[in-house]
Computed example of a mutant assay.
Amino acid sequence: MSFTRRAAVRRAALATFALASTGLGARAQSHPTPPWPTKPVTIVVPYTAGSATDALTRIVAERLSPRLGQPVIVDNKAGANGSIAGGVVARAPADGYMLMMATAATHAGNPNLMKTVPYDSLADFTPTGYCGSIPFTLAVRADAGIATLADFVARAKAAKPPLTYGAGTPSARVISSTLAQRIGAELVHVPYKAAPLALADVLSGQIDMTFIDVGTGLPQFKAGKLKALVVASEKRSPLIPDVPTFAEAGLGPFALDAWFVVVAPARTPADVAGRLRQAIAEIVAEPETAARLRAISIEPEPMAPDRIPAFMKAEKEKWAMLVKAAGIDPE
């Protein structure tokens, strides 16, 4: 074959390859990767059903589903004060299909109260939406003969053996320890896997008290079975407006509210995280959703997405200070 002929054959082959490549590219562009999400999305709840976190997550999931065009599943993974759920989500693929309803306890409390947790509460997650906050209140049985906080303080100081408190969340542990320190009385810690379990044992008389989020305790307050004595927040709760704050009760300033942030695993694609941020912000701003959240004592609060990481970092540092001040050793 002559040089001229070989060159012609080579040029024809290259032209054929170029055409084929162009066709493949056109076909690839005509079938782009489907936009997220293409299957159900799961939000992991770090506590049992019946908790305020669970109720909030179900409201968010219900409103998020139509915005994403896919079912949004709520998956309760209770245990180890929420650290089991945190570890699961931290190790999940960063594709937007597994999220978590992070709380003050899981992302600020656990790192300060536990020697080891299976996640870094800041580095392992991408915040995608702040949902709101809820205060805690001291709850005792209505028939315990304790009508006011002053009654409780007198009982606690005189009690032999000491009164017992249940803590189903890190928040309840820190608030109860702080209360004991400020009133100068011993209170014996009884750990629980979840707040509703501690509340049930207060109702049955197995323990003397617990700090419970207002939303979870409200049905029992309304039914007259439990009495709320003090709120661990900067302001009173509108759902139990007659209950004073720590400062109003003469215990000094103190606030340790529960807060809720939807997070995704770190390195979640920016477009996926952005879509979640927009959707969650819209949900929290809806009047209907806001009313439903307030009905369970969660105050919906807008927070710019770029502020959330700094907020979570500051809360983690605040918890470190409070845990140290209360004399609690990590376990």
Score class of each variant (00 low, 15 high):
1 M>H: 06
9 V>N: 03
15 A>H: 03
19 L>Y: 06
22 T>V: 13
25 G>N: 11
28 A>I: 12
28 A>N: 08
28 A>L: 13
28 A>V: 10
29 Q>W: 12
35 P>M: 09
41 V>E: 01
44 V>L: 02
44 V>G: 01
58 R>F: 05
64 L>H: 02
72 V>W: 02
73 I>P: 01
76 N>K: 07
77 K>V: 11
78 A>I: 04
78 A>P: 13
81 N>T: 11
82 G>E: 04
84 I>K: 13
87 G>K: 04
91 R>D: 11
104 A>H: 10
106 T>W: 00
106 T>G: 02
109 G>L: 01
110 N>H: 02
114 M>A: 09
117 V>F: 09
127 P>W: 06
131 C>I: 15
134 I>G: 14
137 T>C: 13
146 I>P: 12
146 I>N: 11
149 L>I: 14
153 V>D: 08
154 A>M: 12
163 L>W: 07
167 A>M: 09
170 P>F: 03
171 S>H: 14
174 V>E: 03
176 S>D: 05
177 S>G: 04
183 I>P: 07
184 G>H: 10
185 A>H: 09
188 V>S: 08
199 L>F: 14
199 L>C: 14
202 V>P: 13
216 T>R: 13
218 L>C: 14
230 V>P: 11
232 A>D: 12
233 S>V: 07
234 E>L: 11
234 E>K: 13
240 I>T: 12
242 D>K: 13
248 E>A: 09
250 G>R: 04
261 V>Y: 00
268 T>L: 01
269 P>W: 00
270 A>R: 02
274 G>P: 03
274 G>N: 04
277 R>H: 02
281 A>M: 03
283 I>Q: 02
283 I>H: 00
285 A>N: 01
285 A>D: 01
297 S>N: 10
301 E>K: 05
305 P>C: 00
314 A>Y: 02
321 M>W: 15
321 M>N: 15
322 L>V: 14
322 L>P: 14
322 L>T: 14
323 V>D: 11
331 E>D: 12
